[in-house]
Nucleic acid binder design. Structure first.
Length: 1027
RNA sequence: GGGUCGUUAGCUCAGUUGGUAGAGCGUCUCGUUUACACCGAGAAUGUCGGGGGUUCGAGUCCCUCACGACCCACCA
């Protein structure tokens, strides 16, 4: 067999992967030879997504662990699959539609979902194909999908899991246990996607904003004396005012104000607490009045100390409003535009005024129908409305004024005599949707929540008591911090793509007339939660005492609590005339569940729960979860909570949290920055093994991971190095008579060189196992790199050359056998990290009983295989060669020139090492001959080795000054080291308190250094004689 | 505002219980020897961010300062 000079990754990878699949090498339990199991769940990528470097990293680590355990004979499962990713996927489809000027709402819900399923089908293969390119050894027969089994599923996911049923079942179960509830709450609303989102999906960012200061006039022109005092109680300002000053960054929300709040202790406003003031915007004839109340929330030191309260559009205000019974008026629609529904402003203002005066009370639903947006602002975008509101107030002279040189204005200082509205330029934190990137609006809507507080306990305890381990440790704190202050989790989304909530609503009470006449959405308030309509209908039948239940499907756009559309669908009675009156109508909640609710069930859902499957019994709880820190809250914490809540068990033994992949400059890779490295491009260029090895070698825990192509090229070279080591072995007949080898049996060797490399192999095997066992992937990679390149290639292969050429057949044969074994071990140990090139070499070098992927992982011990005398001998040989090479290099001895060496002095150990290995040394150091002498001649360069001195006669070429400088430099370095050693040894406290072995080690080292110092000094003295 | 982490060779980073600092890349010099120029041989470079402390001994532990990164957070 003639091997190519390099490994053709592009050609080989696909072929090898196909061979593994063909052989069923990835199947759960493949190659299992013991009862222990090892299971790992892939963090499911978005089904319509593409793999990025983070995925490449994450999956490389999983594959390493999987392959490692599989080779060790564990019953191994790597469970693959994808996530339906509600918003993200719906976004992809909507973007596609936009290309042809169509929108989601041009379709019925069912039609649209059909499009999404098609999209899902088209892109499903992408992720899998990409993972295959990386070499991921997932059990594809079990490939799962978080919406498998949902209505519309074409059933093209190979795994048999019905994820949808599992999700629905969990919802119903949690609902019945009171862990899930519905209610009107202030939630984060994404006006672009027109859905609620959870706290976690909001990203706060600092932006340039403004703070406006407005006057809220007191009702009926009332006045009061406004007094400001300094810290000592001295009056600094006293004036008559007919207004209260309010600061706001969001003037458009003034329209929904329900009150103005001040601190109970704030003396400035004490005279007017309880009075009414006027919102300075809206038609003059219908100016709304709101009460001035006290609440602990306002900070007297900030702004004017008075805060406007808009319960429906601000989270703080919401709390204040709840405490104070202040009405919360919703101002915007689902798109974030000012409401354009309901009665004209005049009517709405009338109602609000009555409420403010305490003449009327509003129920929650009723309050939501009151649209307090003035007619001229209705339908405007919220930011446009803000502009108009500011203009109107300012135009009316109700802005707080200041001089143009006021530094708070932020701009260029203006004329001190000129008066301008006080609009502070200010950095403000603004919430953005993590996917839509639009400004999030707090909105008062009906949503479903998981009462997370009730299920968080076991998730905290599980980590506290070590039942589940989180690595690195510091990430535990992040986990705890979040869980200990857990908030209700909003799980309903006003999307179409997702698991529809299994709740049907019926009317408050049953009446035949109502059924005939039709129902409005407000009438449908009694929930029936069940896995199917039939089961919900059964509940309703009993509840209402009727014999039949009719389900109404919503068709077009659906937004539960917003518009008339839904209402009309429900009232558009399709009930046939001949139907009896003995029925009740139910309508299903149109909302779907947060994607993370279903991915939170990934562990049990993929393993076939609620069935008591073999997979559940064997592989649950799973062994380890490998994931990035960015989804600790989104996913890890929720899986912990959910698994405990549903099956009462932890989902995994260990959570390994890895770093984020960044670009060379440390920037997060993102499409907008254009610094994204596509893993597939890199695989194309360098091969999957190189990419994998790079990621592995940089996987130090808990840091960022900066990726550069240079580094990948370096590890590609490493593969080539290994490849060429095999070429060398091949050429030397190492594999000539090998059939069906690859056994873990360690070869027996007699020769020092072979004994030595066997010991080194045992060492690296231990290092690799220890490192992988501790999730120190980089340690494993680096140990292998140093071993293969630095030991096997740099030394062992070089040593073998003279041995093969020696003519001693026994030694040559033994070396061949040893080399075959050592190289096999390299393949075995490297395989988890570099599966392709190793499998290729495995097949190319001999006929094998099994593919490398199923080869046996060795367990030989360094303690058994390291031969100390062989080791110290080889150490001396290497030191000797290096010393000669170093002097040659520094003295500019031509590389091609074979030199004659003089042995000035040498101890017995050196003598023995020399005599047994002279052939190796002479070859590698390019020494022609060695002559024993008592004293070095003049004009020789000195070479010191442990236990001896050599001289290199260079009469003609030696530069005495240069040699002197070289020796002095070495001496200087040595003296410094010796100084430290002697200092320590001279310190009685060190002798007393340091451990015995440390003291002993120091003594030995000092002795060696002293001996070398003597040699160098001798050499210098001789040089002085010459000069 | 709260929290976490980081600051080590020109660059990117290792450095597990404290024992006296390493790798890869880059740079410089030399080079074709039974695999490999995606190679080989050799060389240079660090007051381990500053200061203080504990210790016989600190890159490693403690305090403090500076700078940087990230996460969380409702100041109108």
């Amino acid at each position: 067999m003639a091997m190519d000079k390099t490994f053709d990754a592009a050609e080989a990878e696909a072929r090898l992967y196909a061979a593994w699949v063909e052989a069923g090498a990835f199947k759960a339990g493949a190659n299992a030879s013991r009862a222990e199991t090892f299971s790992v769940l892939i963090p499911p990528p978005n089904v319509t997504g593409a793999l990025h470097m983070g995925h490449a990293f994450n999956n490389t680590l999983q594959d390493i662990l999987t392959r490692w355990h599989r080779m060790r004979g564990f019953d191994t499962l790597w469970q693959p699959g994808t996530d339906h990713a509600g918003i993200a996927t719906q976004m992809v489809v909507e973007r596609e539609l936009a290309k042809t000027n169509r929108r989601r709402t041009d379709f019925s819900r069912d039609e649209f979902l059909e499009l999404v399923w098609e999209q899902k089908k088209r892109s499903r293969g992408n992720i899998r194909g990409q993972l295959e390119r990386l070499g991921a050894s997932c059990d594809w027969d079990r490939e799962a999908f978080t919406m498998a089994g949902a209505p519309g599923d074409p059933g093209d996911t190979p795994g048999g899991q019905n994820f949808h049923d599992a999700v629905i079942r969990v919802f119903v179960d949690m609902y019945e246990k009171g862990l899930i509830y519905r209610g009107k709450r202030l939630v984060n609303w994404d006006p672009h996607f027109e859905t609620a989102i959870s706290d976690l999906e909001v990203e706060n960012a600092e932006v340039d904003g403004h703070m406006w200061h407005f006057k809220y006039p007191l009702a009926g022109g009332a006045t009061y004396t406004y007094v400001e005092k300094d810290a000592d109680g001295n009056v600094t300002l006293e004036e008559e005012r007919d207004y209260i000053s309010i600061a706001t960054t969001r003037p458009e929300t003034m329209l929904g104000d329900g009150a103005v709040a001040v601190q109970p202790s704030d003396e400035r406003y004490a005279p007017i607490v309880g009075q009414l003031c006027e919102i300075p915007v809206g038609p003059k004839e219908h100016r709304r009045l709101i009460p001035i109340i006290t609440d602990p929330y306002p900070d007297p030191e900030f702004g004017s100390g008075a805060v406007k309260i808009t319960g429906a559009h601000d989270f703080n205000d919401y709390e204040v409003a709840k405490r104070g019974g202040i009405p919360m008026y919703r101002l915007m629609d689902t798109k974030g535009a000012m409401r354009d529904d309901g009665a004209p402003y005049a009517e709405a203002a009338e109602i609000a005024l009555a409420v403010a005066r305490g003449e009327r009370e509003l129920g929650e639903a009723e309050c939501d129908t009151v649209n307090l947006v003035p007619d001229d602002l209705r339908g405007l975008d919220r930011f446009e409305a803000r502009k108009r509101v500011v203009e109107q107030i300012t135009g009316e002279g109700l802005a707080v004024m200041t001089t143009a040189d006021d530094p708070r204005l932020g701009g260029k200082p203006g004329d001190a005599d000129q008066t301008v509205p006080l609009v502070e330029a200010k950095k403000i934190m603004q919430p953005f949707g993590d996917r839509s990137k639009v400004v999030i609006e707090p909105m008062l809507t009906d949503q479903w929540f998981v009462d997370a507080e009730k299920i968080v306990g076991p998730a905290i305890e599980g980590v506290e008591n070590g039942s589940t381990r989180i690595l690195p440790e510091q990430d535990k704190k992040v986990y705890f911090n979040w869980l200990r202050e857990i908030e209700p989790w909003c799980i309903s989304r006003q999307l179409w793509w997702g698991h529809q909530i299994p709740v049907w609503y019926g009317p408050e009470s049953y009446s035949k007339e109502l059924m005939r006449k039709g129902l409005s959405s407000d009438d449908l308030t009694v929930p029936f939660c069940a896995p199917t309509f039939e089961q919900a209908a059964e509940l309703a039948r009993k509840h209402y005492g009727v014999s039949e239940v009719v389900e109404y499907f919503e068709n077009g756009a659906a937004f539960w609590n917003s518009d008339d559309e839904y209402h009309s669908r429900l009232t558009r009675s399709d009930v046939p005339d001949d139907r009896s009156d003995d029925f009740v109508m139910l309508a299903r909640d149109p909302d779907v569940l947060d994607t993370w609710f279903s991915s939170g069930l990934w562990p049990i859902g993929t393993l076939g729960w609620p069935e008591d499957t073999e997979a559940m019994q064997k592989y649950f709880p799973t062994s380890v979860l490998i994931t990035g820190f960015d989804i600790i809250f989104f996913w890890v914490a929720r899986m912990m909570m959910m698994q405990y809540a549903v099956v009462g068990q932890k989902p995994f033994d260990t959570v390994y949290v890895h770093a984020l992949v960044r670009d060379e400059k440390g920037k997060k890779m993102s499409k907008s920055l254009g610094n994204v490295l596509d893993p597939l491009d890199l695989v194309d260029e360098f091969g999957a093994d190189a990419v994998r090895f790079t990621l592995t070698s940089m996987a130090a825990m808990g840091r960022d991971l900066k990726l550069s192509t240079q580094r990948i090229a370096g590890y590609r070279n490493f593969g080539t190095k290994l490849w060429n080591a095999f070429r060398f072995a091949e050429m030397n007949g190492v594999f000539a008579d090998r059939r069906c080898t690859g056994s873990v049996q360690v070869v027996y060797a007699d020769h020092t060189v072979n004994k030595w490399i066997i010991g080194e192999t045992a060492r690296v095997r231990e290092e690799v196992d220890t490192a992988l066992g501790a999730y120190r992937f980089n340690d494993a990679a680096n140990a292998l790199y140093a071993f293969v390149w630095g030991k096997v290639c740099d030394w062992y292969l070089e040593f073998s050359k003279p041995l093969f050429a020696s003519g001693d057949k026994a030694v040559a044969d033994e070396t061949r056998a040893t080399m075959a074994w050592v190289l096999d071990q390299c393949l075995v140990l490297l395989h988890p990290i570099m599966p392709f090139i190793t499998e290729e070499l495995w097949g190319a070098s001999a006929e094998r009983a099994k593919m490398l992927i199923h080869a046996d992982w060795p367990d030989y011990q360094a303690a058994d295989l390291v031969d100390e005398s062989a080791e110290s001998e080889m150490r001396w040989v290497i030191a000797m060669i290096e010393a000669v090479r170093s002097v040659r290099g520094e003295m500019n001895v031509p590389a091609a020139l074979k030199v004659d060496l003089l042995q000035v002095e040498l101890d017995a150990a050196g003598e023995a090492a020399w005599s047994r290995n002279s052939a190796l040394i002479q070859r590698l150091a390019r020494i022609e001959s060695v002559t024993v002498t008592d004293a070095a001649p003049k004009g020789a360069a000195t070479i010191t080795v442990p236990g001896g001195t050599y001289a290199l006669p260079l009469a003609d070429i030696i530069d005495v000054t240069a040699e002197k400088a070289r020796l002095e430099k070495s001496l200087q370095k040595l003296s410094k080291e010796l100084g430290g050693l002697r200092g320590r040894l001279g310190n009685p406290k060190f002798i007393d308190s340091a451990p015995e072995d440390v003291v002993e080690e120091t003594r030995t080292l000092a002795a060696e250094k002293e001996a070398e110092e003597v040699r160098l000094k001798t050499a210098l003295a001789r040089l002085a004689e010459v000069a």
